[in-house]
Every structure is written in C-alpha cells, then in structure tokens.
Simulated assay, not measured.
Amino acid sequence: MAGVLDSVNQRTQLVGQNRLELLLFRLRGRQIYGINVFKVKEVLQCPKLSSIPNSRAVVRGVAHIRGQTIPVIDLGMAIGLPGIAQEDLPNSFVIITEYNRKTQGFLVSAVDRIMNMNWEDILPPPKGSGKDVYLTAVTKIEDKLAEILDVEKILSEVSPLREDVTEAIVTRSAQRAPGHLPVLVVDDSSVARRQIERCLTAIGMEVITRNDGRQAYEYLKEITADGSKAGDHFSLIISDVEMPEMDGYTLVTRIKTDPALSGLFVMLHTSLSGVFNKAMVQKVGADDFMAKFSPDELAERVMEIIDQN
C-alpha cells in the first residue's frame, strides 16, 4: 500500500507523452476499475465517517481529513452495485480526489496498484454498452478487462452542477455580432459534452463534438485536406485532457505542429484542476486552460476569445 501512496505524487512527468497512470481498485467483487492518478490526492484506510442528516444513501458520510471535511461517496452504490456493508468499512479504502474544483472521497473495497499505460491502449467502451453505462473507457490489464469510470457522470448524479448560463450573460451574447464559426468540443464524457454544448448554445454558438483526441485530429485533417486552414472552419477548439486513444496533450501537440491546424485557438478544459498550472499548458502549446465546470466562466471566456480573434 505504501508504494501506491508514494506513486500518487509522481504525476506531472507524463505530460505530453500520451501516457497516464491508472489507479486500479475493486468494488465488491473481482472486477477491476480505474481512475487517472492525476485526479487522486491521497489514498487511505477508511477513516471514521460522520453521517449527514437527509443525505442520499450513496453518500456514506463525511470524513475529517487534514483540516478538511470531505464527503465520502460509496462508488459501487453510485454505479448501481451493492454498497459496502457497514461492518466492512474499517477494512475498506477511501480515494481522495479532486474533480471539477471539488474534493471528495470515493469509498472502495480494495486498492490494487498503479499502472503506467499509453493512452493508445485505452479504448472507448464497447458499442452497445448503452447510454446509462458509467464507463468512459476500458483497457486490458494482464488479459483482464479494466473499466475506467466516468466520474463526471457519477458526480453529476450525486451532486449536480449548475449547467445554465445566467440571463445577464445570455443577454450580453445576443448583442454581439452574428455569424461566428462553430466551436469544436472534444471530450470522452457524454455528460461533459452535454454541459459544454448547452453552455455554448445558450450564447448563440454552433457546436460540433468529437469523443476523443484521435477522432478530433482525424476530423481536422479531413476538413483541411482541400488546402483550407482549421481556422477557416472553427472559432476555437475546447478539449478535455484525459481521453482514450489520444489525450488532450498529444492532440494539442499535433495541432500546433501541423501548418494547416496550428492557427486554431486551443483551450484545454479539464477536471484536473488541482494539479494543472500555466507551465504545463505552455509545455504542450495550448493557448488557454480552464478548470471544469463553470458555465458562466466558460461562456464569458469563449466570447472573449472569439471577439479578440
């Protein structure tokens, strides 16, 4: 277990290499699940939990950790599996994570190890999985299928974010000159794509989406095959960072080194808010970075970018 905790701190060296580290864990049963170590702040034996009156059953309580009061979500229960029994809590683990500017703990029955992997080995969920599946990707580890959870979908159900742009910003957007080029949105989470599309549509923008970096790159190459530039087709691209097959870092690098694409403004828009900084944005050549998800901030920033370009 000490090796897992030590490895959690070795994060930023993978930036721009289309690689990631997956923290592997189990819920109740033999199935292996994973989340990106980038989003993990700490892993610890389940501490004493204090109940929250009138909270949903999936929130098992709050833990007081290093001066913070952190809600602890039973991850198995959140995806429709049986929750961890009360008597098993002392032998369970809590994965402390930061997503979308919030810190929360995920209760799991066992933490396995950390695997260093290439994003090319991380694949979209099998077709036919259904829209209600809580997976954002899958991968093979020692001939076993590991399921990478769509944590944004889980959190949107457990603790919904406000998704609507305020009326004042919508009104201001209506006063701008019409006729802007579409925005290309790249994100492997269906929830995140919906949130961003809803935000940008509210301010009058047309949105085209792709599910991962490879899809987006191939699409950009296709539409510029006639000799046009990517900037002739899109106002900007808003891309997630962690995506199967090709991550956002690699997508940015390929865009910025391709003469037909390099002029396109690229914003990285990711829930990796706790560990991301301007130096890392500059390392991969992105033009901007914004932590998920504030509809007003995103709407205002997109209008600002378009008006400046």
Score class of each variant (00 low, 15 high):
207 V>S: 12
218 E>F: 03
234 F>A: 02
273 S>C: 15
243 M>F: 05
216 A>S: 07
235 S>D: 10
285 G>E: 09
222 E>S: 07
298 L>G: 14
248 G>D: 06
288 D>L: 13
180 H>S: 13
221 K>R: 09
262 S>G: 00
236 L>R: 02
252 V>E: 03
185 V>A: 14
182 P>A: 01
265 F>S: 14
177 A>K: 15
257 T>H: 02
227 G>E: 07
237 I>F: 02
240 D>N: 10
256 K>A: 03
208 I>R: 09
300 E>V: 12
245 E>P: 06
280 M>F: 02
180 H>I: 05
265 F>K: 15
200 L>I: 14
247 D>K: 04
270 T>F: 04
275 V>P: 01
201 T>E: 14
171 T>H: 00
229 K>T: 12
180 H>A: 08
195 Q>I: 03
180 H>L: 00
193 R>Y: 02
211 N>I: 03
189 S>C: 12
183 V>Y: 01
288 D>P: 11
190 S>I: 15
176 R>I: 07
204 G>T: 04
286 A>N: 08
291 A>G: 14
189 S>L: 06
261 L>W: 00
300 E>D: 15
237 I>G: 06
239 S>D: 07
184 L>R: 03
196 I>E: 05
184 L>I: 13
269 H>V: 15
211 N>K: 11
281 V>D: 04
284 V>S: 08
242 E>P: 04
259 P>R: 06
232 D>T: 13
240 D>A: 00
262 S>P: 09
178 P>D: 09
287 D>W: 04
258 D>N: 09
239 S>W: 09
232 D>K: 12
177 A>Y: 05
277 N>S: 13
184 L>H: 05
285 G>T: 11
265 F>D: 15
297 E>L: 09
286 A>Q: 06
228 S>F: 01
217 Y>S: 11
282 Q>V: 05
206 E>I: 10
250 T>E: 14
199 C>M: 13
186 V>N: 08
239 S>C: 08
179 G>P: 02
260 A>S: 13
230 A>L: 04
266 V>H: 01
190 S>N: 08
203 I>Y: 00
288 D>E: 14
227 G>T: 06
189 S>A: 14
287 D>K: 10
262 S>M: 13
252 V>G: 01
280 M>R: 03
231 G>P: 01
171 T>E: 12
297 E>S: 05
249 Y>F: 07
287 D>V: 08
218 E>A: 10
215 Q>V: 10
262 S>A: 11
235 S>G: 09
271 S>M: 03
244 P>D: 05
259 P>E: 13
300 E>F: 06
211 N>Y: 05
263 G>D: 10
263 G>N: 14
215 Q>S: 12
282 Q>K: 15
175 Q>C: 01
204 G>F: 08
189 S>N: 07
179 G>Y: 00
190 S>Y: 01
192 A>F: 03
290 M>C: 11
205 M>R: 13
193 R>H: 03
219 Y>H: 08
294 S>G: 07
199 C>I: 03
